[in-house]
Amino acid sequence: MKKNLWLSPIILILIPLLVFLISLVMGRYPKPLFMPISVLINDELAQRLVFSLRLPRLLSAMCLGMALSAAGGVMQMLFRNPLIEPGFLGVTQGAGFGAALSIIFLGSSPLLVETSATFFAVAGLLFSYFIARRIRFGGWVLRLILAGIAVSAFFSAGLGVLKYLADPTSQLPEITFWLLGGLWSVTWRDLFYILPVVVIGLVIIYLMRWRLNLLSLGDETAASLGVSVKTERTLLLGVSVAITAVVVSVAGIVGWIGLIIPHIARRLVGANSANFIPVSIAIGGAFAILCDDIARTLSAGEIPLGIITSLLGAIIFLALMISPGVRLKQ
């Protein structure tokens, strides 16, 4: 088979690494855009800024992008539907609800907000799963999608109530800001909270990347090819939801990465998940760092990350759809 340049391991590692290193010296200190290397060597404040604030933040952005694009790619395959995004099983809305609940009733320390967001993200998934088991019609995929829609609507209604109850001068802006997503408050502690889950999850997804193709076939066909459909699907679904839930709980709702990046990866190297999953992970990491660069550098204040990813994501998505040679799949 023809070797594709994109699939060379050097490119896959080099692109996120390059973006990462450039971003490390990018910011608004001492002046906007790039920090000269001499400043980094001589200025103690610059060192503290780079190593205690910027470094964990960039690593978290990378985890966020990699996790969402890997989970998005996996879920699109498992649900045999290219329009699925990783938070749709009640995970995203659950996290939003949990965060708002904590901000109003428990306090807005990052640890509390993150724990509550993770808790409700996982609760969202479990609700979706058990409701899906009780739905009496349709195949497994349809049942889970329907249950996910219902649970998401339920949490989004709950979130609406919480926003209505929130103190409009202090709590409401905080909730809104959280919902728009961002990594401004990330510390080493947050990184260590998400890192083990994300690393283990990505390794499992990476190792099973060819197998994933089989799960995108019909159940009967997959089983006739020797796949233990239920076990393998549950494992990959669980892993994808876990990495999505932890990164969302730290970063808030960062849209579009999990939907768009797998599509871009498929455009570059084709539908075979053995190829597109690694590309998706690499581009996802680089894309999230880049978006976060814009979020923290473009203005003196912080632009919520979710706004940048949605805006850039939508532009790239449209460019992809409009550009010649791209066919819409049935």
Binding site: R80, L225, G270
Partner: peptide
């Protein structure tokens, strides 16, 4: 098994698709 019909949501190439038969 050769199923009656199969909906393929993603653009696999023919060879990639046939290669899935090696899974057992």
């Amino acid at each position: 098994l050769v199923p009656q019909s199969e909906y393929v949501p993603f653009e696999y190439s023919v060879l990639e698709y046939v290669l899935l038969g090696r899974a057992p």
